[in-house]
Lab assay of single mutants.
Amino acid sequence: MLDDRARMEAAKKEKVEQILAEFQLQEEDLKKVMRRMQKEMDRGLRLETHEEASVKMLPTYVRSTPEGSEVGDFLSLDLGGTNFRVMLVKVGEGEEGQWSVKTKHQMYSIPEDAMTGTAEMLFDYISECISDFLDKHQMKHKKLPLGFTFSFPVRHEDIDKGILLNWTKGFKASGAEGNNVVGLLRDAIKRRGDFEMDVVAMVNDTVATMISCYYEDHQCEVGMIVGTGCNACYMEEMQNVELVEGDEGRMCVNTEWGAFGDSGELDEFLLEYDRLVDESSANPGQQLYEKLIGGKYMGELVRLVLLRLVDENLLFHGEASEQLRTRGAFETRFVSQVESDTGDRKQIYNILSTLGLRPSTTDCDIVRRACESVSTRAAHMCSAGLAGVINRMRESRSEDVMRITVGVDGSVYKLHPSFKERFHASVRRLTPSCEITFIESEEGSGRGAALVSAVACKKACMLGQ
């Protein structure tokens, strides 16, 4: 009897593995994704193909990295998701002549009506938060230079001027797309009239992360975010950046690689679950690469896999709870928690219980395998993109072996128990001629924006502006 049951459990697990095998990517698959990513990057950089390229390769006008001589107080704003952060950054000489960066910050959550109302409502709310922060720190009387981390696709015309191309991540505030974001912020500050600010720089969160990590390690020339969304930036040779005049030196390019796949480059790798996630998203047909990796989508992918296993009578005796059938019910943090389970399955059992399920031991094991399959594919897909960037940098610099540091931020990278190990191992397999160091950014977005502002202020002083 026991043997029969054991055989049935083994057969069930084997069927589960057959279904989950769809998520496995072979090294040849990853090399294919990497080569296609490089081709799209090239198209994004070139003037004649930029418009139709899915990977936009947006110039950021960040050319210099901090040298350690900029000092002063800077205000930093960070808008990239449902939370908005205001930070005071003091850049100065530390002990023994070292450079020191001290920060104080406060988080504000953005109400739904500000995210989806008008641009005026959104930026009025942001300036209200700045006003509140300055009151708390008794700094209303000071006109501070301000660095703005704005983590949406922007076409820069200068370091302090950028046109919002399109909202992502659930934002829909009308009247912002096609307009200068810094102008919208300046107008809102003017409307309030109770404080003055000098907006000197606007950067993407990947750029802010790279600059913040450069402060720790001067070989950091790539910034990457794996959180709600997924994106990367890197220092490109100016001669390859056709959208900006000049051939000397390097400029940081914001790849906006989340949109890779929007022209069909990933079609052969998309599964039924991916198509369902895409169809029910706020932007169907867009940001397809990001939807395979980002935390906004990972939990939902797992939920759809679990429903398939229920329908195949391989999980929960073929019956799903009402909660499990509800879109968004299986949160991405559950994926991390399930994979963090120590082996007694308590954590998995508790999560499934909150979803109205009474799982068996085998159910718990199957749910864990589903989570591992989805998150491992995410790590491997992400590795193909980064390997594409790094191999490109090595080739354009004609280096036999390139040493490089990548600064990384984002909740999936930082909080998932195995993502970074799987990701690092896969990147290294795909970049055999590179020695890569990964560092995690601390308060990256805010500190990085302030350091970019410090560079901009120093330049302005040198130019006598």
Results as ranks from 00 to 15, higher is better:
206 T>W: 03
16 V>D: 01
267 D>K: 06
284 P>A: 11
366 I>M: 03
455 V>I: 14
144 L>K: 04
308 R>M: 03
448 G>N: 13
365 D>R: 03
37 M>K: 01
53 A>W: 06
156 H>C: 07
340 S>T: 04
314 L>T: 06
11 A>T: 15
348 I>W: 04
255 T>F: 14
13 K>M: 14
464 G>N: 12
3 D>R: 02
197 M>S: 03
39 K>T: 10
61 Y>N: 04
114 A>Y: 15
291 K>I: 14
98 Q>K: 14
387 A>H: 02
221 E>D: 04
430 L>H: 09
148 F>V: 11
377 R>S: 00
314 L>V: 09
150 F>W: 15
216 E>V: 00
203 V>D: 00
80 G>S: 14
204 N>G: 08
137 H>K: 11
220 C>V: 02
198 D>L: 01
139 M>S: 14
100 S>N: 12
145 P>L: 01
124 D>W: 05
449 A>T: 14
351 I>S: 05
295 G>L: 15
109 S>T: 12
83 N>V: 04
176 A>R: 04
341 D>G: 02
106 Q>M: 09
134 L>S: 04
196 E>N: 01
368 R>S: 06
259 A>K: 15
95 E>R: 10
450 A>P: 12
386 L>D: 00
417 P>W: 11
329 A>C: 15
213 C>S: 08
227 G>Q: 11
454 A>E: 11
196 E>P: 08
136 K>L: 07
113 D>E: 06
372 E>R: 01
319 E>R: 09
38 Q>S: 07
86 V>N: 02
56 K>P: 09
303 R>V: 01
91 V>I: 04
15 K>Q: 09
123 F>D: 01
276 L>W: 11
389 V>T: 03
50 H>Y: 06
204 N>F: 05
457 C>V: 14
57 M>K: 00
70 E>M: 08
340 S>K: 10
318 G>A: 15
321 S>F: 09
226 V>S: 04
144 L>R: 05
278 D>W: 10
116 T>N: 13
290 E>D: 12
373 S>Q: 06
286 Q>P: 08
20 L>R: 10
382 C>K: 02
49 T>I: 03
109 S>L: 11
270 L>D: 08
231 N>T: 06
267 D>Q: 08
458 K>Q: 11
19 I>S: 15
434 C>L: 07
141 H>K: 03
405 T>P: 01
384 A>H: 01
